[in-house]
Design a protein around this nucleic acid. Structure first.
Ligand code: MN
Ligand code: MN
Ligand code: MN
Ligand code: MN
Lengths: 217, 217
DNA sequence: ATATTTTTTTAGATGTACCTAAACATTACT
DNA sequence: AGTAATGTTTAGGTACATCTAAAAAAATAT
């Protein structure tokens, strides 16, 4: 049985190796988990011994198959709980992450199976992130960062990259939510900011913001 | 912030001091928490320092006001989650306790406030135990052990004393659940067992069983 | 009242998950 | 290539929650 700390490491390794195929470095883990490099080295030795990661000194770590499957189960739980909080307990999308960080560690396969059923087998969480199925399989729709969209490009918001509460509150304020249509009116060369049509309104968003909004196609 | 272990100690002290007014002994805690007396002594020193219990060497412990309030909050969470599991996730009453033992430690006042609302502010959990309100106030209906009922006495099952899965499954089998009417037909002097009318059926139950069934009046 | 038994506490260890400081490896820069 | 900077690991230490074995206190029995 893995501890909360071990589970959090596996989840962090999963997220940090998403996209790229390079091993995850000690420092990036320390950063991500808000701990110290020395602590990371301690922990990854233990995880390597438990065969949930592959570790070579000074090189970095990769999840093993079993480690990846554990990570996906935790992510599944996290996202299912977020759906529950928003759909059933009137939480806003910027309020769920902290609580889900706790709930994701509850150990009960039956609970998750039943929760999934209760929620109607949702495929995406409140931030547009895909929910792995019982086998850890993910179905991700094609998505692009708004920041990378070309002038004139249209789509709808399908997800956000950051679950930071301040960012999500800002999106609420400008009327950006999952499903809202967007169109790139213009791109400002100077600072990378964008003029976009968001629903009915036309507004400017910073590069920082547009990097964290994912749109369809 | 209290750890899971500390919270479990406070809950155990609360339950062990229910009814009686004597302090809780080291050994009874060790028994209840399935740990060793030496470990209990270590922990109660720490809890005394945090002012959540009163502790005098060789004498035993009592919850302080703040400790009692913490214990009641944990019990509140435990029982609300049990209601959720049974009412919404199709758990049976013998399946909920283990999971609730985990869920009771989730720290989020908002979550519990919203869960309570979602459940319709239930007053009792699936085992008939009262749910403390936000202030820790309990409203317990008068209840008697079936074992203490006199011949001819009638009532309905309002709660069970033991959440042990095997016991609850047995109750399911004989058709005993919260709300089922009971009448004491006869008491067997020899072994303290009872002949009872349970709903429409007449059956015999052991003293052991009747001690763990609570009826109204 | 003394001796025996039971209960509780202390002493000393262990494993987990952290930490700081120092040593060692790797990488980047003249 | 040699040096400086950066990244990683080791050494040694702390707090927490456990444990076993031994000592001490309290309760019980003769
Ligand atoms: Mn989240
Ligand atoms: Mn999410
Ligand atoms: Mn319970
Ligand atoms: Mn209960």
């Amino acid at each position: 049985m893995l501890s909360f700390a071990e589970e959090n490491y596996l989840k962090a390794i999963y997220h940090l190796s998403e996209g790229g195929s390079e091993p995850v470095s000690t420092n990036s883990l320390a950063d991500n988990l808000e701990t110290k490099a020395a602590s990371v080295t301690d922990m990854i030795k233990k995880l390597a011994q438990k065969q949930v990661i592959d570790y070579k000194k000074y090189y970095g770590v990769n999840l093993s198959d079993s480690g990846k499957s554990v990570a996906l189960q935790i992510i599944r739980k996290h996202r299912l709980w977020e759906v529950f909080l928003v759909n059933n307990l009137e939480f806003k999308w910027d309020e769920v992450h902290e609580v889900a960080e706790q709930l994701e560690h509850i150990k009960s396969p039956l609970l998750i199976q039943r929760l999934d059923k209760f929620l109607g087998f949702p495929k995406y969480d409140p931030h547009g992130d895909p929910i792995p199925d019982e086998n850890g399989k993910l179905t991700t729709k094609p998505r692009t960062e708004l920041a990378l969209a070309k002038k004139g490009q249209q789509g709808v918001i399908v997800a956000v990259n950051d679950s930071n509460s301040a960012f999500l509150k800002y999106l609420d304020k400008i009327g950006a939510r999952i499903g809202t249509p967007v169109e790139v009116i213009d791109k400002v060369e100077f600072d990378g900011s964008l003029e976009i049509k968001l629903g009915e309104k036309v507004i400017f968003v910073s590069k920082e913001v547009s990097t964290n909004i994912l749109i369809s196609e």
